[in-house]
Amino acid sequence: MEKWANNKAWFLVLPVVIIVAFSAIIPLMTVINYSVQDIWGPGQSVFVGTEWFEEMLGDKRLHDALWRQFLFSGLVLLIEMPLGVLIALAMPKRGWGVSACLVTIAIPLLIPWNVIGTIWIIFTRPDIGLFGAGINNLLGIAFDHTARPLDAWITLMLMEIWHWTPLVILLAYAGLRAIPEAFYQAAKIDGASAWAKFQYIQLPKMRGVLTIALLLRFMDSFLIYAEPFVLTGGGPGNSTTFLSIYLVKIALGQFDLGPGAAFSLIYFVIVLLFSFMFYQALQRVGKGEKG
C-alpha cells in the first residue's frame, strides 16, 4: 500500500489550507501580537515582552482553573470510558433494536451545548426540577447546585456523563460490530468464559476506536465551555471555573487583551502538547491494527 508520490496533490489540499489558514493563522497572529503588548486604547499600545506570560503563569486563579480542569477531564474519562463500553456490550447486535438504540443514544450529541445546560437547569433546580426536587423532598438531602460547590460538581458531572457517554458508546459499538463472527465462534469452541472473551477478544479489537474515543473525550472535556457556563456560570464562587470560562472572562468580559492573549497561547500549548502525544499514540495503534 505505497502511496503515489506526487507533489501536485498540493493543489487538491490548497482550498483546505486557504480556508483553515484564514480562520486559524490570522487570528493566531493577532493573539500573538496582543500577548506581547499593553493596549489601553485604539492605536495606543506599548511592547511589554513576556510580561503578560509571566503574570499569567504566576496567576493563582489560572493554576486553580488548570487543576480543576485536569480533575474534571480525569473524572470524565474514568467514568465515561468504562460506562460507554459496558453499554455498548449490552446493545443488541441485530434487528430493529439496533436502529432504535443508536438513534436514542445519539440524541444528546445533537442538542446545542447551551440547551444541554438549559435542560439540566430545569432538571436539577431544587424548586421545579425533577432531580433537584426529588433529592430535596424525597431523600431529604439539601441539594442546590447554585449554592454548594460539591452539588455543582455533581450536577456538572452528571450532565457531562449524560451528554457525552453516547459518543463513547457509539465508538465502542462500531468497534464491536467490526469483530468477525469467527472470533466469537473460536472462543466458544475454546470454552472461553464471558470475561475471557471480553479480555482477549473484544477489548484488544476495540483498542483503535477506544483510543479515538479517549482522544476526543479528553479534548472536548478539556475545552468545555458552554455547558458549565449556562449551568453554573463558573460558580458558586469559582468552584466550576474551568480554563475556557476563565479565559473568556478575562478576554471578553474584562477586555484584558494582553493577559487574555498570553493565557490563550499557554492554553493552546498545553492542548497541543497533549494532542501530539495522543496523535502519536493513535498513529501507532492505527498501524498495529491494520498490520
Binding site: 468477525p180 469467527a182 472470533f183 465462534q185 473460536a186 466458544k188 469452541i189 475454546d190 470454552g191 472461553a192 475471557a196 482477549y200 477478544i201 484488544p204 479489537k205
Partner: peptide, 29 residues
C-alpha cells in the same frame, strides 16, 4: 454447545488472541 462437544475448528482467516503469546494461545483452551 460447541465447548461440550470436544470439537476444534480452524477458520478461513486466522483467529488468534492477538494480545497473547503463541504459548498463551495454545494454552487457552
Amino acid at each position: 454447545p460447541p465447548e461440550k462437544r470436544n470439537i476444534a475448528q480452524v477458520f478461513q482467516f486466522p483467529v488468534l488472541y492477538d494480545t497473547m503469546t503463541v504459548f498463551g494461545n495454545l494454552a487457552f483452551p
